[in-house]
Nucleic acid binder design. Structure first.
Lengths: 233, 233
DNA sequence: GCAGCGATATGAAATATTTCATGTTTTTTC
DNA sequence: GAAAAAACATGAAATATTTCATATCGCTGC
């Protein structure tokens, strides 16, 4: 992890967070927030936010993809959801607790700004409209994790793998033909089943010509069939 | 469901929501919010908020207990969490969407105030500190549902039933000896397994003298053992 | 107070999933 | 470029869970 100088690394001109917040605060106020912000790069599998740790910043993910991960004492993981930049990741502030109940981990190389919560809160207190706007930003990831919860609880493995393939295609990679940036093990953690079961299911979908699966490369051949499997569960 | 006159039903003097919000808004502002608020009573199994419906209010549960429920097209249910009064239930506003992705259903007779979102938002815009306070109120239910998600994903049925018994004892009924206000079927929907599996597990815990189970009456005999089962999963 | 319905309970058979063992392929490190 | 490690793949056995059939108990409605 490499700490960088201000504005010498990320292209702040196209930053959606900056564009949004500058509607509500002055340039001077933005400068004070920016001075307190850390711009960092994370490599795949590095922790952006650590479960169990205290946290006094929120994360603006300007580039890359992350997973929202929960780990048991015995080292078992569950992925609550996966998400794309650009996005604001609230972690603790979202759930009103200073201790993170899950980790946020890079699944690809990521560009991240760590934004000081106390300064941000001081702007929120002065400008209530800002809080509604930030809430708008912060809620997406939780919604997706609730959809995953619902999938996990309602469906058998076929339906869950179908859900995940659809989610990856439509929301993460924006293509029916994509190169995975997560392993089969991570897909299993996302689906709440064993790695062998994921591999068996992907193989069966490949044989049924629903997908074409060649290592990390996945192509959705029959989205309608996949959606049908998702619905059946 | 019975609509009632203002202040002729609930004891508003002890209302935590009123006490809290009156720190941030004037009596006149409170009056205008109150005039737009509906005070309602719900019986067990009545819908306070309906999945798939639009919603322009948030719910203050002043008395009773509710479940946060998701239903599939085929009628299968999952309970994301169960919660006690007094609590503020945000539904859509929490996830920044006007359509509810889950239902809130009474599991006992409930007293509820439906609070107009637009009026509340107009206060938030004027007073940013209020938004932080409301966020504090609104996040608890989601946090509990995330804990349930994590339990569901990490653990086998024994561990999940143990988790639920602990949660009911410590958070819902505040006693090691309680009368259930949910059925075995609802416990199964909360645990994401079959009703027979819940009954088998409760019977086994009864035989192992971890709990005493007599119909709706449950007593936790060995909380340490239950916690151990919860940890093992 | 009784009949009917819903909830609870039990145990066995069927199904879904995990675990295990082993091998192959791909990626990473030196 | 090669060796080692990680990821992927396969199939069978073991385990967890659901489904099914049946019976009993408790609650609701008339």
């Amino acid at each position: 992890m490499q700490e960088t100088k201000k504005e010498s690394w990320f292209n702040c001109d196209v930053c959606i967070f900056k564009q949004t917040i500058c509607h509500f605060i002055t340039d001077e106020e933005f400068e004070s927030l920016f001075e307190a912000t850390q711009q960092l790069k994370f490599k795949r599998n590095e922790y952006i936010m650590k479960q169990g740790a205290k946290s006094d910043y929120i994360v603006y993910l300007s580039k890359g993809r992350v997973k929202m991960n929960s780990e048991t004492d015995s080292g078992k993981n569950i992925i609550l959801t996966i998400t794309n930049a650009p996005i604001l990741l609230g972690g603790a502030i979202m759930l009103n607790d200073s201790i993170n109940i899950f980790s946020i981990i890079a699944i690809e190389d990521c560009d991240v700004c760590l934004i000081n919560i106390d300064i941000l809160k001081s702007f929120i207190i002065k400008n209530g409209e800002l809080s509604l706007k930030l809430l708008e930003f912060l809620s997406g990831m939780f919604k997706d994790s609730i959809y995953n919860f619902i999938s996990l609880a309602h469906k058998q493995v076929n339906g869950r793998i179908a859900d995940i393939l659809i989610y990856l295609s439509k929301t993460i990679y924006h293509s029916n033909n994509f190169t995975l940036t997560i392993t089969r093990k991570e897909i299993a953690e996302f689906a709440g089943c064993s790695q062998e079961n994921v591999i068996h299911t992907l193989t069966r979908f490949h044989k049924d010509e629903i997908i074409r699966s060649e290592g990390k490369s996945i192509e959705i051949l029959d989205m309608d069939k996949l959606i049908k499997i998702s619905k059946i569960g």
